Every structure is written in C-alpha cells, then in structure tokens.
Simulated assay, not measured.
Amino acid sequence: MQYNSLQDFLKTGRDALAKGPIALIFAEDEIELATTLRHHRHCGFKQVLCFVNDRYDMPGDLVGKVIRITYDPTADGAVPRAVDAISAAAVGQWMFYCYNAEYLFYPFCETRSIGEMLSYHTEERRDAMLTYVVDLYASNLDTTPTAVDLDDAHLDRSGYYALARTDPENDNHPKDRQLDFYGGLRWRYEEHIPPERRKIDRISLFRAKAGLQLRDDHTFSDEEYNTFACPWHNNLTAAVASFRTAKALKRNPGSTFDIRTFHWHNSVPFEWHSRQLLDLGLMEPGQWF
C-alpha cells in the first residue's frame, strides 16, 4: 500500500485508520528503517504508517504490510503537521509516533501486546502516556562511524534527572504533574544540543481527538496529555530506545570531531528487554502487573 502524499492517503486511504492502535514512523533516512518497522509490527499495532522520502526503498518483506506515504519528515514542522492530520482523521484511536532507529518498549512488552497495555491505560481514564527517549549508541565509533549498531548497543545506566516544568502564563509556577526530564547523550553533550532540544520526555502514545495539536517540543495542546500520572496514583510509562541523538551527533560537522567515543564509566550494554529499563527506572509499570 503506497500513497503519493499525505493528502492522497487522507483522501483515498483513511479507511486504514478504522482500527487501532496505529504507529506512525517518520523516516529521516534509511538507517535501521526496516528493523524499526518490523519491531512495531511485532508490538501488535494494527496499522504501521511509514512517512518516507520517495528516494528510499521499502524493505521487500514489508511491502503490503506497512502503509507507505511519500513525505519529507525533515522539513520544518513536518512531523507535527502529519501527526495532527492523522489524529484529526482517526478520532478516538490510540496512536504512537517515532523516527527510524527508534524502538518502543513498555512494561512486559515481551509477553503482552500494545493493545493490551493501552486497554488497561484507557480503563485508568488516561488518554496519553509519557515516554522517555533513552539514547542508544555503539560503543566503538571507529568500527561504527554512524553510531548505530543493534548488536553493540549501549545506554547510560545513570545521569537522568527531572526539573519542574514552569508555566509562563501563571507566574512561572510549576505545572501540575508535569516535569522536564533530562539525561543520556543530550545531557552529556549539551554543548552541541540547543537548549530547547535537550529534554528526553516525549508524549509518544496518545489518543486522537478533534483539535489536538502536537507542539515542536513533543508536548500537546491539551495540558492533561502532558502529565506523567493521574491525580490519584502513578500510571504506566514507556520508553523509546533511540539511536537518533547519537546518529545526529556523529553526522553533525560541529560535533563529530569532538566525539571519539560515547562510552563512559556508566555505559552498559542494552539488553533489548523491558526488564532492564524497569530496573533502571526508565519506565514505570504503575498498577499494571
């Protein structure tokens, strides 16, 4: 299934949005695009939409299994525009969005589907879920100059922290149940990261509704969507294991020569298992057992 533009899909293919949850994958390049698409199909998403430049090929085994939409996710504001458009066309459906070389992990994802988790989250009267973008990186940049290596992926086991998210419209008082989270490569190499791009929190999972808008900082226009928990107890959170920052730091001429290795004393191999992320406190099972 292939569409020449987002408008073409919304005009002739929107019936594919009738069943959720739906994954939106934005391909900034070809790096690990195939594994990203396969991973999210394996999670149990009913539909996987791939927004990709027409110069990149779709892996043969995914043709007919993934909806390909010709689109340039690297254009200014392109991702929020696409998320808003799909959300408006699929009101009530749960959605997830990420980029290539990013992989969703949630508590017990090895034995439970994304649909099961979101059904429980819906029962808790939650319409969005906080995810932490956990930076992955290859330990040896001499042999892996792109910093992307699934077989040698590492992450930071510590160095994560949160600050109150202030409200400029309310004398900069802290917002209710909202925090800005930091850590990983964006913290260790902050001199190469613009301040507005240093946060690692993202509302990656959300329930579409009319008028909902995604902001450039990965928060939504509905402030309740941006909360990490409901008022009465902790809720589920998830993690997005991501090579995106490492890839960008090594691709950017302003930082690539300053970074010989991402490895440091708090680096540990990534086990590709939700248990490791739970043990490190990088996601929360809430009341779901």
Rank of each mutant, 00 (worst) to 15 (best):
Q2L: 14
S5F: 00
D8W: 00
T12Y: 06
A18C: 05
K19T: 09
P21V: 11
P21F: 03
I22A: 00
L24C: 13
I25E: 11
F26A: 10
E28F: 05
E28D: 10
E28K: 00
D29H: 13
E30G: 08
E32N: 07
A34Y: 01
A34V: 02
T36P: 01
F45V: 01
K46G: 09
Q47V: 05
V48K: 12
L49V: 08
C50Q: 04
F51G: 07
V52K: 15
D54A: 15
M58Q: 05
M58Y: 05
V63G: 14
K65P: 11
K65R: 09
I67V: 02
I69E: 15
T70Y: 06
Y71N: 00
Y71A: 14
A75F: 08
A75Q: 14
G77F: 04
V79M: 02
P80Y: 13
V83T: 10
I86Y: 01
I86W: 01
S87Y: 05
A89M: 00
A89N: 02
A89V: 05
M95S: 02
N100W: 06
N100H: 09
A101E: 08
E102W: 04
Y103K: 11
E110R: 02
T111A: 10
R112Y: 10
R112V: 05
R112S: 11
I114D: 02
E116A: 05
L118Y: 13
L118P: 10
S119H: 14
H121E: 14
T122A: 12
E123W: 10
E123I: 06
E124C: 15
D127H: 06
D127T: 12
M129F: 06
L130N: 11
V134P: 08
N140L: 05
L141G: 14
D142H: 04
T143Y: 09
T144L: 10
D152I: 01
S158I: 11
Y160K: 12
Y160T: 05
L163Y: 00
R165P: 03
N170Y: 09
R177C: 06
Q178E: 02
F181K: 07
G183V: 04
L185I: 01
L185G: 10
R186N: 03
R186D: 09
R188Y: 00
Y189I: 00
E191P: 00
P194L: 12
R197I: 04
R197G: 07
K199P: 09
I200R: 14
I203P: 01
F206C: 04
F206T: 03
A208C: 01
K209W: 05
G211A: 02
Q213R: 13
Q213M: 15
H218M: 15
C230D: 14
N234Y: 12
N235R: 02
T237L: 01
T237P: 07
A241S: 04
F243S: 10
R244H: 15
A246F: 09
A246R: 07
K247F: 03
R251D: 09
N252E: 13
G254A: 12
S255R: 10
D258L: 07
R260H: 00
T261L: 04
H263K: 11
S267M: 00
F270N: 15
W272Y: 14
H273K: 07
L277C: 14
L278S: 14
E284A: 12
E284S: 14
E284R: 11
P285Y: 13
G286N: 02
G286D: 01
Q287C: 12
W288I: 06
